[in-house]
Amino acid sequence: MGKLIRSRAMQSGCIIAACFLASCGSKKVPDQTIVTGDNFEITLTELDQILRAAPPVQKEQVAPARRAILDTLISQKLLAEAGEEAGLDKQVQVVQAIEAAKRSILAQAYARKLVGEDDAPSEAAIRKYYDDHPEKFSRRLKLNIVEYSVPQGFPNINEYAALLDKEGFDALSTKMAADSPDTKQLASSRLSSELPPTAAKILSSLKPGSDISYATPGQVHLGRVQTIEIDPQSFEEAKFEISEAIKSERREQTVAAAVQELRKSRHIEIVNKDLKVQAR
């Protein structure tokens, strides 16, 4: 099965305490200076802008994480100002990168404006989603796999994937031992809920002893299924995840529809013959 199955990253973590984003409850002037130096300052607003985008951390890590982010901001601002003084902001590549960043930020901001505040899906909608995706919830499986996990840029990775598909995991193991003896087999577990909808047919055909290839961010996994266990998730356990999934789908549909209308109104046409072929 030469297809690579890209797993859906599972999000986790504790909610950041409110004081992580601002000032632990005390009201302060929005542009209050928090770092000073010779012709240098950083305001609370600048720090808060970064903190709002920071990933969640454990409560006891709030203070050290906040300080680490501030130190990073100081370094970044010093280096940026030094770069401007050196005239790097006039270099073509830098100008292009700034324009690309501006374009991305504006596009994301407009997408958020289109979506607005998501209404929470109804209990009936959540239940329907649960019932319509048994492979993710009520009939969720856990696959215990022995595999080789290598970076996506690993040498000859396509050759190894083809070997697994044609001759099986034993042949792959022999080849890996000869070519890359430092790359060891690993034992891993994957839930069926981590696999994309396109993997449904493959998933239904898997059994102990089946060879499998799939991808996670930055990694390619080539292995063999050892055992398959039933690991269902109850409706109550899945409700929050389903609610977020439904809202995410709504956002994607809203933005996709808006982009389609914008393309039509602006008569967008790809004229390069090599790029005109529709992606598959």
Rank of each mutant, 00 (worst) to 15 (best):
S210E: 08
S205R: 06
P134V: 10
A279M: 02
R224E: 06
A256Q: 07
E123F: 11
D211E: 09
T198F: 09
G25D: 10
T198M: 03
V271L: 15
L275F: 10
P55A: 01
V29A: 15
L70E: 03
Y160P: 01
K247F: 00
Q76M: 00
A279C: 06
M176C: 13
I16H: 15
F154K: 02
L172T: 08
A109F: 14
H221L: 07
Q32E: 13
G223M: 01
V259Y: 03
M10W: 04
R52N: 14
F235H: 08
I50D: 10
D211P: 09
K184W: 01
R140Y: 08
V259M: 07
E41F: 07
K175E: 13
E261K: 12
P121Q: 00
S205L: 09
Q49C: 06
F169V: 04
S248P: 00
E117D: 15
R66W: 00
A200S: 07
L275C: 13
I42F: 05
A54E: 13
I69L: 11
P217R: 10
K264V: 15
Q32C: 13
S192D: 01
A215K: 09
S193E: 06
R8A: 15
E252C: 02
A279V: 11
P55V: 07
M176N: 03
R140V: 07
F137Y: 15
G168C: 06
D38H: 14
V57Q: 00
T254F: 05
